[in-house]
Structures are given as structure tokens and as C-alpha cells.
Amino acid sequence: MVAPRVNEGLLQIAGVDEVGRGALFGPVVAAAVILLPVAAERLVKVGVKDSKQLRAADREILYETIKTHAVAFCIGMASVREIDRMNILQASLLAMRRAVMRLSITPDLCLIDGNRAIPAFAIDQRTIVKGDQREPAIAAASILAKVWRDRLLVRLDRRYPGYHLASNKGYGSRAHQLALETLGPSPQHRLSFSPCQRSLFQSPPQPAISPAIPML
């Protein structure tokens, strides 16, 4: 990975990525990060790359390093209710939109991980397949989004015990699916996802609890 060539002649470029699309529980979370070229080069040297290729402990360290070197960064998310209402793809794009729009600086260009652009978006954007492996700003965004969401799931594990959220981070591990069969879905499970739908018929639903997500 090298510092992106596409930022030549532009003032501010934001890398944008999301995490949590495949999870059964909790919001989908996106991050937007603006880096100057010199900061991008420095972050690559200290190990910034696709968050999936990093250990959790390394992501935690890089999370703080990225925040220090970024011109601007922000988190956006789409709730479980929004995921169930509009589908996970559209909710992911909504989370990305929110992350970009809440930046303290409006970027000239957004580099979006994947092949789907944010719909009806006023800011110029470019989609990059496997962008978290090719563009430092996208890799940085993937790390911020991953760490933020993981921290949130650890906190939600205390609110919704029994699903092993601190370890599985809301994904469909065997332990998580067994808990779904036993406990039924919580108010933060994605009922539009088939494993959560099946669990509705296998066990009584939990009492309604406020679906508010704590902010970190």
C-alpha cells in the first residue's frame, strides 16, 4: 500500500469504509477519515492496513494513532431498525453518508470502499474495490469503524448478557446462534436476517427494552 495518487491537485480527500454488514446484532458502523499525503505515508509505515488483517490489540493502538494524524475523522452508523426497514446495503450506505456529512471539513472527494457509491450524494466520490487494501485513508477508516463498533459491542454485552457479544461482536458464531435459540432475539438483533427470524419461532422473545445505542 502506498499513499494515494488520486489526491494530487485536491485539497481534502476522505477515505470511507464500514463494518458490521454481516453481523446479526447491532448497528452497521462507518468511518470517514481525511489524511494529508505525508500523514498517509506515515500511517502506512506504522502498520495501517485493512482492519481485517490486524490483531485487535494492534487496531486499538492504530486507532489512537490515526486520530492523532488525521485532518478530520468521524463515525456514522445506521440502527438495527434502519437495517430492518431498508436492507443492510442501503443502511451501510446511509452510515457512510452520515460519517462524511459529520466531518468537520467537507472533503473534495470521497474514496468509498467497495463497488457501490453513496446514492444522491453531492460530494464527488470514487468507489474502489478492496479499497481498504489499496488506499491508506480507506484502511484508516476501516480501523476506526472496526474499533468503535467492537467497543460498542463490548458495552452492549453487559446490557444484553448471554449472547457472548464481547467475543463474537454480534456475528453469527456458534455460541451466538445457540444463545439465539435459547433466549430469542434481543431488541438489538436484526430481525430481517434469517438466523434471527428463525429464533423467533424457537423461543419466546425477550421483553422490550429501550433500543438506544450508547455512544462512545
Rank of each mutant, 00 (worst) to 15 (best):
A3V: 06
A3Q: 00
A3C: 03
A3W: 03
R5A: 11
E8A: 11
L11A: 11
G15M: 04
V16F: 02
D17H: 06
D17T: 09
G20R: 01
R21V: 01
L24Y: 05
F25T: 04
A30G: 03
A31C: 04
I34Q: 01
I34C: 07
I34V: 13
L35G: 01
A40N: 01
G47I: 00
V48S: 10
K49I: 06
K52C: 12
A56P: 04
A57S: 15
R59E: 02
L62G: 08
T65Q: 13
K67M: 09
T68A: 09
V71D: 05
F73R: 00
C74V: 01
A78E: 01
S79L: 01
E82Q: 13
M86R: 06
N87A: 01
I88T: 01
Q90S: 03
Q90G: 00
A91W: 03
R98K: 13
V100R: 14
L103R: 09
I105Q: 15
L109M: 03
L109Q: 08
I112F: 03
N115P: 04
N115V: 14
I118E: 12
F121P: 13
Q125H: 10
Q125C: 07
Q133D: 10
P136L: 08
A140L: 11
A141G: 07
S142G: 14
R151Q: 14
R151L: 10
R155S: 14
L156F: 08
L156W: 11
R159V: 03
H164S: 11
K169S: 11
Y171V: 11
R174Y: 04
L180M: 06
T182Y: 03
G184P: 06
P185G: 06
S186W: 07
S186T: 06
S186Y: 04
H189L: 07
S199P: 05
P204I: 12
P205R: 12
P207Q: 11
P211K: 12
M215G: 02
